[in-house]
């Protein structure tokens, strides 16, 4: 009895404790290491004599962030944040709608596939970001050119994943519907679309990241407003702390979108166990 108890407790320490305990420890690793990095960074900048304008300390980054958020007027982050978010959301929304529609069409119609596919492949080969200046020529310096680029960029992952999701439905499921004498429309609605959802959600997650990239790059190219513009302005002023502060905001925007999509995925594709 005593021996087996000893073995048990030995195993416990080896395994790192109960699963729940282990999960909590795992969750603490990231904040702990982050804190360490931040403190290390602060100390390193202060101790070594690097130019603290070029490499801001964490404290000054937080100060810049606070300044931007607390301020009203043209230097405030809010209008720019809002503008970039608008570009991202409109571009993302448009790309998703077009990607789903065209992807669905190509997946179910051989004719559509024959017509659309070659164009998709052609456009695919061009780095979309390189079209940003062209968008300005066509659509102006306003929000339209940014949204258009974001649409173009987000459209691809959605399109590709919709097509491959609808194409890779397990054959048994289609056979089941055939054995029930189900028509095409019903098979699409009851089997093909639901089967494609895990793929589509994977596409959405990629598209969200792309949308932010597209918005920022087109603001770099021709922006009058937006976080991308703020980054450029701060960069020119050598206000690197502000650049970092805005990068943090952009990161939060990306994380927010990804989290929302993940939440929707867990609710809608709850049955998918990867």
């Amino acid at each position: 009895m005593a021996v087996s108890e000893k073995v048990l407790s030995a195993r416990k320490t080896l395994g790192g404790g109960e699963p729940a305990e282990r999960r909590i420890t795992a969750r603490l690793w990231f904040p702990a290491s982050l804190l360490l990095i931040i403190v290390g960074w602060e100390v390193a900048v202060r101790v070594t004599q690097v130019n603290s304008v070029l490499v801001p300390t964490p404290v000054s980054v937080v100060q810049a962030l606070w300044r931007g958020l607390a301020q009203t007027g043209p230097a405030s982050f809010y209008p720019h944040f809002w503008r970039t978010l608008q570009e991202v959301l409109l571009g993302f929304g448009g790309g998703v709608v077009i990607g789903l529609l065209l992807g669905g069409l190509v997946a179910i119609s051989p004719t559509a596939q024959a017509i659309i596919r070659p164009y998709i492949v052609m456009i695919e080969a061009v780095p979309k970001i390189a079209i940003a200046p062209l968008m300005v020529v066509w659509l102006g310096f306003g929000i339209e050119s940014k949204v258009a680029l974001a649409v173009l960029v987000t459209f691809f992952p959605i399109f590709v994943n919709t097509v491959s999701g609808m194409r890779s439905v397990p054959a048994e499921r289609l056979e089941l519907m055939r054995s029930l004498r189900a028509g095409r429309a019903l098979t699409i609605r009851l089997v093909i679309v639901p089967s494609a959802l895990p793929f589509i959600f994977a596409g959405l997650e990629i598209a969200a990241v792309y949308a932010v990239i597209a918005a920022i790059v087109s603001e770099f190219v021709s922006g009058q407003m937006g976080l991308g513009v703020l980054i450029l302005q701060a960069n020119f002023r050598l206000d690197i702390a502000t650049v970092f502060a805005i990068l943090i905001l952009l990161g939060l925007m990306g994380i927010g979108m990804t989290k929302l999509i993940e939440l929707a995925r867990k609710r809608i594709v709850f049955w998918d166990r990867n």
């Binding site: 048994e172 499921r173 056979e175 089941l176 054995s179 029930l180 004498r181 189900a182 009851l190 089997v191 639901p194 594709v269 049955w271 998918d272």
Partner: peptide, 18 residues
């Protein structure tokens, strides 16, 4: 009616997971 004449069962259950 159509689809009501034959019941089929395969080696796999083929249930729709959703």
């Amino acid at each position: 009616g159509p689809g009501t004449d034959v019941g089929l069962m395969f080696q796999q259950a083929v249930l729709l997971p959703w």
